[in-house]
């Protein structure tokens, strides 16, 4: 097994374990968020293994950086005590939910391998700065520019709802 393959398996296992750690960590939200950071970073390492360096950098900057910091801000701002969200006692919804989840997963696992299209060979420079730049500023320039209005809308909306006094 090559070094890259070994790194992939280690990081993939770490990503799965920490993702479970986030979902199952009901009592301590901060610990859950920290588990998510590790998931994001292991995914970034997998991107490096795949030679998509720019995507890896973005993964760390956007997810591990910005989004996780936002999560932690919200967690600390709300200052929830662990008993504020006691897991519900009712078992019926849990059992039904788990059954539906498992059924869907089984259906997907049974049929998915055939349903997946045969992927064409990925170009060598996939995920490079050049390719990402071309995709963003040439192919998808309209949605990219619209995103700025989307952010403006979110900012104005947040100010309208949250500012103490509107003049």
């Amino acid at each position: 097994m090559s070094f890259a393959a070994g790194l992939f398996y280690v990081m993939a296992a770490l990503a799965v374990v920490t993702a479970l750690g986030m979902v199952l960590n009901l009592r301590n939200t901060v610990a859950g968020a920290m588990c998510l950071v590790v998931t994001m970073i292991s995914l970034a390492v997998i991107y490096v293994v795949l030679d998509a360096h720019f995507v890896a950098v973005l993964q760390i900057m956007v997810y591990a950086g910005a989004i996780l910091v936002l999560f932690l801000f919200v967690v600390m701002l709300l200052n929830l005590r662990s008993d504020a969200f006691t897991p519900s006692r009712a078992t019926a919804p849990k059992v039904v939910g788990a059954a539906v989840g498992v059924a869907v997963l089984a259906a997907f696992l049974a049929k998915l391998p055939d349903a997946l299209p045969k992927v064409a060979e990925i170009p060598a420079d996939f995920g490079s700065y050049r390719q990402v730049g071309l995709a963003l500023y040439r192919d998808y320039v309209v949605p990219f520019e619209v995103a700025s209005f989307l952010l403006l809308a979110a900012v104005v909306g947040a100010v309208v709802l949250a500012k103490r006094r509107l003049s």
Binding site: V146, F149, L150, A153, A154, V156, G157, A158, V160, L161
Partner: peptide, 9 residues
């Protein structure tokens, strides 16, 4: 999204 987000506010 651009339609929905302002309408939430």
């Amino acid at each position: 999204e651009l339609m929905s987000i302002p309408i939430y506010a």
